[in-house]
C-alpha cells in the first residue's frame, strides 16, 4: 500500500517534470547544528522556471533546506551539511567550488526586508559592482533601472533613487530587496517567507511579482501561508520535523495529498 503511493507520487512528479529540466537537486541532504540534526535525508528536485513552495509547521526544516541551497548556512557556527546538493549537476558543497559564484547564481530574499543603510540606487548597484557585471556608469544605471522595473518598483521610486532605501515602506523595501537580488542576474531566487512582514496589499504585489519572475528565474519560496503557496507555486514540498513528507504539483498537494500529515496541515489542524 505504502509502496504503491510512493510510486504513484514519483510518477506524478516525473510527469509534471517531463517538460522542465531539473535546476537543483537534493540527494539525501542532512543538516546538523552541532550535535542536533535538523534535516534528515531530503531528496528534492527544483525545476527550472517554476515556483517551488516549501511548506510545513514551524521548525520543520524548510528554512534550513532553503538556506542550504545557496550555502547561507555557512555563516552559522557549527552547522554541517551532509548528502549532495547540485546546481546544474555540479555539487555545490564541493570544496573546490566558489561560494561567492554560487550565491551570485542562487540569490536570496529574506523574511524581513533588509535594505542596506544606503540609497536605493546603491542598494541595487551593490551586487553588479562586486561581481564586476558592469563596465561603465551607464551600464550600471541601466541595470539598476531594469532591475527596479522587473521588481515593479521603478515607477514608485524613479525620482528618489538617491534617498535611503530604509525610508521606503515595508512592501517597497521587500521589492527593493528582490530588485537587488535580480540585479545580479541570478538563475535561482530563494525567498524565505518574503511576505510575512508585509500587509495584505503589499503581499499581493509581491506575489504578483513572483508569478511574473517565474518566466525568467527558478524560484524557491518558503511560506507559512497555504493560500500563498496555492496562489504562486507550481510545485509544493511538505516538510515535517526535518523530514520531507511529500512533494508534488501544487494542485495535487492541495486537493489530494497522499500523506495524512499534509492533509492535517493544509486543513489547519496544526501548524
Amino acid at each position: 500500500m505504502n509502496e504503491m503511493t510512493e510510486t504513484a507520487t514519483e510518477a506524478a512528479v516525473n510527469a509534471a517534470a517531463s517538460n522542465r529540466s531539473v535546476k537543483m537537486r537534493g540527494d539525501k541532504v542532512g543538516v546538523f547544528y552541532g550535535e542536533k540534526q535538523a534535516l534528515f535525508d531530503v531528496d528534492l528536485d527544483i525545476y527550472e522556471h517554476e515556483v517551488t513552495a516549501l511548506i510545513g509547521p514551524s521548525g520543520c526544516g524548510k528554512s534550513t533546506f532553503l538556506r542550504c541551497l545557496n550555502r547561507m548556512n555557512d555563516t552559522i557556527d557549527g552547522c554541517r551539511v551532509t548528502g549532495k546538493l547540485t546546481l546544474d549537476s555540479e555539487n555545490i558543497y564541493d570544496p573546490k567550488i566558489d561560494v561567492v559564484e554560487l550565491r551570485a547564481r542562487v540569490g536570496m530574499v529574506f523574511q524581513k526586508p533588509n535594505p542596506f543603510p544606503k540609497s536605493i540606487f546603491e542598494n541595487i548597484a551593490y551586487g553588479p559592482r562586486i561581481h564586476g557585471l558592469v563596465k561603465s556608469k551607464g551600464d550600471l544605471d541601466e541595470v539598476v533601472a531594469i532591475s527596479l522595473q522587473k521588481a515593479g518598483l521603478f515607477e514608485e521610486v524613479k525620482d528618489r533613487l538617491n534617498e535611503p532605501g530604509t525610508g521606503l515602506s515595508g512592501g517597497q523595501q521587500q521589492r527593493l530587496c528582490i530588485a537587488r537580488a535580480i540585479a545580479v542576474s541570478p538563475e535561482v531566487i530563494l525567498m524565505d517567507e518574503p511576505c510575512s512582514a508585509l500587509d495584505p496589499i503589499a503581499t499581493a504585489k509581491v506575489e504578483e511579482l513572483i508569478d511574473e519572475l517565474r518566466e525568467n528565474y527558478t524560484i524557491v519560496i518558503v511560506t507559512h501561508s497555504m493560500q500563498q503557496a496555492a496562489r504562486v507555486s507550481q510545485r509544493t514540498a511538505m516538510f515535517h520535523l526535518g523530514n520531507l513528507v511529500e512533494v508534488d504539483a501544487t494542485d495535487v498537494i492541495f486537493t489530494n495529498p497522499s500523506d495524512p500529515k499534509t492533509q492535517d496541515y493544509i486543513t489547519g489542524r496544526y501548524g
Binding site: 540569490g107 533588509n114 543603510p117 537580488a181
Partner: peptide, 23 residues
C-alpha cells in the same frame, strides 16, 4: 540581516565588511 543580505547576493566576506558593515 545586513550580512545575510550581502552574502545572499554573493558578496565575499571582505566585500561585505568593507561595503556594508563598515559604512
Amino acid at each position: 540581516a545586513m550580512r545575510d543580505g550581502s552574502y545572499g547576493l554573493g558578496a565575499t566576506q571582505s566585500e561585505t565588511i568593507k561595503r556594508v558593515i563598515l559604512p
